[in-house]
Design a protein around this nucleic acid. Structure first.
Length: 253
DNA sequence: AAAACATACAACCGCATCACT
DNA sequence: AAGTGATGCGGTTGTATGTTT
């Protein structure tokens, strides 16, 4: 059975695929900030996105979610991954759970890159030491030895400061949020008015008046689009993120 | 300078599992 | 208990970017 989040692949040919634009990021963040996460399949449309729920979820979980770290892994993180992988195997989500701010996807990518690099050197090494495993080789390569000239760590582990830097802007986006550890916002309009299903996608906008979530969101977005001002955390997210700050200013006040 | 190759990472896909009715 | 929808996970692919030849 295809899951509901797979439906897009089969039916909704019109849905956009591929890399997310800054504008799309902006819409998704703004929408979640305002309404919270209630149903990925039904959130995309009112958020103004021609994306599948699955795509939205993935983008959120792997990139837009607050408190995510971006950038190179630290030595400590690297060692943790190796240790946990030895213990848990390819259970990336479980490993990610132990590394705050890192996603399973990121860890998986990192590990696979390492394994690829190591598989070659390991084959050579295997001639000398047949018992060597990928994990051991990876551990040795990343190990504390000063001569960790491992090919694996081409992405040389960054200092804490280094890897923190790129994450700052997104972290700032969410710095004033109340959220769960999983990154889901816990306070949304639904805390006051009930779930979207319950409210038939209607939210109160003033005394005695309601509008649909889509209308409300579009109205807010139009205000934001009209605004100016930039903050440029990521080169490719320049405009979107700057708009985000304006969004939060508007909504927080 | 340009082509070929390597690398990193974002995103997609299919399946498993969970939750609800 | 079975059916259905929603979510999560891991494997894989596509592509942008960097490096080498």
């Amino acid at each position: 059975m295809a899951s509901s989040l797979d439906y897009d692949a089969d039916k909704d040919v019109g849905l956009k695929k591929g890399a997310w634009s800054g504008e799309e990021d902006q819409k998704l963040i703004a929408y979640i900030k305002r309404y919270g996460i209630w149903n990925w399949n039904h959130m995309a449309k009112p958020a103004g996105l021609s994306r599948s729920g699955k795509s939205c979820r993935l983008r959120w979980m792997n990139y837009l979610r607050p408190n995510l770290k971006h950038g190179n892994f630290t030595k400590e993180e690297e060692e943790t991954i190796i240790r946990l992988h030895r213990k848990l195997g390819n259970r990336w989500a479980a490993i990610a759970a132990k590394l705050h701010g890192r996603t399973d996807n990121e860890i998986k990518n990192y590990w696979n890159a390492r394994l690829k690099k190591h598989s070659k050197s390991e084959e050579a090494a295997a001639a000398h030491s047949p018992k060597n495993s990928n994990i051991v080789a990876a551990q040795e390569a990343s190990g504390g030895s000063s001569s960790s000239n491992s090919t694996a760590a081409t992405t040389e582990p960054a200092s804490s400061e280094e890897y923190n830097d790129p994450a700052v802007p997104l972290a700032r986006l969410w710095s004033n949020d109340t959220e769960t550890s999983s990154g889901n916002t816990t306070e949304s309009v639904f805390d006051q008015v009930g779930s979207p299903q319950e409210q038939h996608l209607l939210i109160p906008v003033s005394e005695g008046t309601c509008m649909t979530m889509e209308e409300d969101f579009q109205e807010t977005m139009s205000m934001i689009i009209a605004a100016e001002g930039f903050y440029s955390p990521y080169p490719n997210l320049q405009e979107s993120l700057s708009r985000e700050y304006l969004i939060y200013d508007l909504w927080d006040n």
